[in-house]
Design a protein around this nucleic acid. Structure first.
Lengths: 187, 187
DNA sequence: CCTACCGATCGGTAGG
DNA sequence: CCTACCGATCGGTAGG
């Protein structure tokens, strides 16, 4: 019988396997074993392997979009918005450290129309982020630089957090990262 | 007939396919087609699919190690060594923008003993990088911060350069990235 | 370098 | 939810 909890368990197990081995290298038999089922029984809960990947990617994309929506609507300065966004990326990497790798790396195995749906959500998010950076530059809060290069560097810079071992110290790590990006490492 | 040029052509084509689709999603038939051969003929030039991945990863690892060796031996200050290393990562991402993704992401599909050989090379490289950062902190050239977090952030921060479109402007991009990491984005 | 082919494994379905 | 099974495709080999 198809229960929502079971589907959720499948998504969680899949995110972990995709993270450890990658989407392509994870078989439906691997996944079935992880949730104590036979491969064929998975299809009572999900439509296809790709649907699992799609669900995981969209969940993450939607969460990023939602948080961006909140941040954009505040009256905070551009630099405070950027701080909030960097912290968001770190937060996501800590709390959702399995599924974030699907969002970051495995989405490219999606086919149409999921692929376009995902990339356009991501594009929108990055566009909003870019505008905040441009605002920061024009308001003289940020140095003058190519906003796209700035954005790319920020987005990449937290892409190790999900497999950082000492999770307990992540609060401190977040501060260090924000400080690095805002003020640099040089004294 | 097995020629060295043909093997090199196979490695180049493989790096491109691994970059575009990932290692697991690239079949030997895809690769064969890319070099105008039948799949079985590939085996006159290479031992196995994994050997191709291993060769690509090791080539990159060895180049990073060699450059690190040169940088370490200079009498430059820690901060100048770090600048040189950031530029090295950008340089590699530009000149070798296909194979760098194998080095970054696909190496995990290696099996033993290649896997250990690769990870220990990488570990050594990161250890040397870490020592330069620690030296920079103790010489008061860098702010006091967790050196491992600093290293991870630096290493991640250039991991978008390989698919940056305007290759012509990469020189400027490199300066922007170095500047961001050393002095931050805040004014 | 190719044709022909191997066993293993893949995602997924039928039928109960 | 399982057993049984499908066609397709995988990496790789034999033999010439």
């Amino acid at each position: 019988m198809a229960s929502i909890q079971k589907k959720e368990a499948i998504l969680v197990a899949a995110a972990k396997l995709f993270r450890d081995r990658g989407y392509q290298a994870t078989s439906m038999r691997d996944l079935a074993e992880a949730v104590d089922l036979k491969a064929s029984s998975l299809y009572n809960h999900i439509g296809s392997k790709e649907e699992i990947l799609s669900d995981i990617c969209m969940q993450n994309a939607d969460r990023f979009s939602a948080e961006m929506g909140i941040i954009v609507q505040t009256t905070n300065s551009p630099i405070d918005k950027i701080k909030a966004l960097i912290n968001l990326h770190i937060e996501m990497a800590i709390t959702d450290y399995t599924s974030i790798t699907s969002f970051n790396d495995e989405w490219r195995h999606l086919s149409e129309p999921s692929l376009s749906e995902f990339t356009s959500k991501r594009k929108l998010y990055e566009q909003q982020f870019l505008e905040i950076i441009e605002e920061g530059i024009s308001q003289d809060q940020l140095k003058y630089m190519d906003p796209q290069i700035c954005l790319n560097t920020i987005l990449s810079s937290t892409r190790w957090v999900y497999d950082y071992k000492p999770k307990a110290e992540m609060g401190e790590a977040a501060n260090t990262i924000v400080n690095m990006l805002l003020h640099g490492i040089s004294k």
